[in-house]
Amino acid sequence: MQSHACLNIDTAPVRDEELLADVITRVIGDVRHIAVGNASPIPAMAALLARARGGGVPYVSLLQSRKHNFFTDGGRELFDCAGQGRIDVFFLSGGEIDGDGNVNLVGIGDYDKPSVRFPGSFGSAHLYYVVPKVVLFRTEHSRRTLVPHVSFISAPGGNAPNIHRPGGPIALVTNRCLFAFDRQRRRFRLESVHSGHSIAEVAEQTGFDYDCPETVEVTPRPSDETLRLLRRVVAPQLAEVYPQFAAAVFGARAP
């Protein structure tokens, strides 16, 4: 990735990461507490953007951050908070994601000798159930990642009615489009396609079935105010947790 540090900070063209963060922030809506886990720089951007817009609300907890994290009871506090319903939004990705909203963070092939091994399930097998608004995100939108059925279910998109499950997926954001998720039907619906991409391309690159309305909007461009907040407020905050990402995307360093 190329550094954009030399461009004028307020007039540089919209970066893909900025568009995705803006989309995620819109999907989240008004909430009290957004938590972000490991290896999630774009969701972290979105959470910090929501907080910058709200002048300090919602609360944002970046799991790996020293500064943007108010927890004082160790790593368990995030999960304890979530179990009680004190976290409104979380983000999950997956090596594979399927049309039922199942995510795979473990691997492909035989469990004992997989052909592909991912890092592991992280907190997904709890948070996906108890956080009301889980946003799935994946910046590689392809038939390799968005598959008919995942090889391993780290966390399922839904459960039988007798399983305690106040939470679950609300949307899937990719580099090409935004899908909304219908929890009753366990099915995605194409909501908007990002500028420069097409409905046909989404169909070509998606391995699972989804609902496609007759007309699908183009994902709106972030406003000038959003871009200003992302570049002037969010980027330096992000650099504390994701130094490589912030430097590559924004040319930003931690203050």
């Binding site: 490991n38 290896a39 790996q64 691997g107 091994r117 890092p119 592991g120 907190g123 130094p243």
Partner: peptide, 20 residues
Amino acid sequence: TSAVSLGEFGPAPRFTAAAK
């Protein structure tokens, strides 16, 4: 474990190789 990864530096290579 719940996960082993090098975070921004990508997958943990020796963990991945041993798992496979």
